[in-house]
């Protein structure tokens, strides 16, 4: 059973992608304005998957796993790897060998404050207090500079293009720091 959780601020932003999907998803698509799932599962980037078994045990902690190869030139992640791993788990119950690149990200005190600052910024942006929101977004970015859900995820709320120059500046910063975070589902991807 798939549960898709959108780290988005509005139903409309998420719905645009759901409506465009072919076939249309038959599974639950949920809206997570407060990034509750990020908080509970230590998710710092999207798209990220977590595998949970019949006994509600996490059998695979968060890994980056794009659904298709649209951004493969950029990520070098082959989406078929995760799809094959998933089929093997669902059909035979086999888990992929633990990759060196996969490791859960344990939250730091700074990251926890950054999540709170982000939520204050998001609230203020929603109620039209964009200038006040900016202070909180800036503080969140200072405290958790490698968290994609904060650095990139706040760009739309800050009136920035998530594919614009602030995004590419962030990616350069992240790569220079050694691409921190949990790995991807594809052990052959460089990060």
């Amino acid at each position: 059973m798939v549960v898709a959780v959108a780290f988005d601020d509005s139903v409309d932003a998420a719905r645009e992608w759901v409506d465009a999907a072919d076939p249309r998803p038959e599974y639950a698509v949920l809206l997570d304005r407060e990034h509750l799932l990020g908080e509970l599962y230590g998710i710092v980037n999207v798209p990220t998957v977590v595998w949970v078994d019949e006994d509600d045990r996490i059998v695979r902690p968060p890994v980056v796993a794009p659904g298709d190869d649209l951004f493969k030139d950029f990520t070098h992640i082959d989406s078929n790897v995760h799809h094959d791993q998933l089929r093997a788990w669902v059909r035979e119950g086999t888990l992929p060998p633990q990759s060196d690149r996969e490791h859960p990200v344990v939250p730091t005190e700074e990251e926890q404050v950054a999540r709170v600052e982000r939520s204050v910024g998001a609230h203020l942006a929603r109620v039209g207090r964009r200038h006040a929101a900016e202070r909180h977004f800036a503080r969140a970015a200072e405290l958790a500079p490698m968290n994609w859900t904060i650095r990139r995820g706040t760009l739309p709320l800050r009136g920035e293009d998530p594919f614009g120059s602030p995004f590419f500046a962030f990616v350069a910063e992240w790569e220079a720091a050694g691409s921190p975070g949990y790995g991807s589902a594809d052990p052959n991807a460089p990060r």
Binding site: M1, V2, V3, A4, V5, A6, F7, D8, A13, A14, E16, W17, D32, L37, G38, Y41, I43, V46, P47, T48, V49, V50, W51, V52, D53, E54, P62, A65, G67, L86, W89, V90, T149, R152, G153, L155, P156, P162
Partner: peptide
């Protein structure tokens, strides 16, 4: 078995 998928429009 459950697959949690965190995604975003951005």
């Amino acid at each position: 078995k459950k697959l949690l998928l965190a995604w975003a429009s951005w």
